Computed example of a mutant assay.
Amino acid sequence: MVRGLLSSPSSRTSAPVRPQRNACIRDDDAFRRCTVKVEERLPNAAFALSWTDPTRCSYREQVWKRATARRAGVCVLSGQAIKRGDAVFRPQAHRFKIPLNSGAMILAVSLEMWGGSQADPE
């Protein structure tokens, strides 16, 4: 039985599978189904958010820190376009624990309006 499976044409690949270039676009589409609730403003330019995505994950009081966008995307809070280099907030990753929503971004302007004043710069 194993020989039959190994000799199957579908078990052979001629080239390694590469990640698709449109992965970021698909992530942005997936993030549109999520629910984001701003819980509180934290010191050092951070916010605690609750994130619920019915297909991926759910985080309560997840810490998001201010950063610079490394790629274009879509703000999960406002739906506005994000350009590379824009000020954004991203989920905080730990050394060995990267959250499933680590590719998500929120424009800094969207969160700063919630807090009532400008968040502290990095």
Rank of each mutant, 00 (worst) to 15 (best):
M1C: 10
R3F: 14
G4A: 15
L5D: 14
S10Y: 15
A15N: 08
P16S: 05
V17K: 07
R18P: 09
N22K: 09
N22D: 15
C24E: 12
I25P: 02
I25A: 15
D27H: 13
D27L: 14
D29N: 14
D29H: 12
A30M: 09
R32T: 14
R33G: 09
R33H: 11
C34H: 07
K37C: 05
E39L: 01
E40R: 06
R41I: 06
P43S: 00
P43F: 01
A45D: 03
A45W: 04
A45V: 02
A48S: 04
A48G: 01
S50V: 04
D53C: 07
D53R: 03
D53E: 01
T55M: 07
S58Q: 03
Y59K: 05
Y59F: 00
E61A: 03
Q62N: 04
V63E: 07
V63P: 00
K65T: 11
R66A: 07
A67P: 01
R70F: 07
R71Q: 12
A72Q: 12
A72C: 11
G73C: 07
C75I: 04
V76G: 01
V76Q: 01
V76D: 09
S78A: 08
S78N: 08
G79H: 02
Q80H: 10
Q80R: 09
A81S: 15
I82A: 12
K83D: 12
G85T: 03
D86Q: 08
D86T: 07
V88P: 09
F89Y: 14
R90C: 13
P91R: 00
Q92I: 10
H94K: 10
H94T: 12
R95C: 05
R95L: 10
R95I: 12
A104G: 10
A104H: 00
I106Q: 03
L107C: 04
L111S: 02
L111F: 10
M113W: 05
G116C: 08
G116E: 06
D120H: 07
P121F: 11
E122D: 15
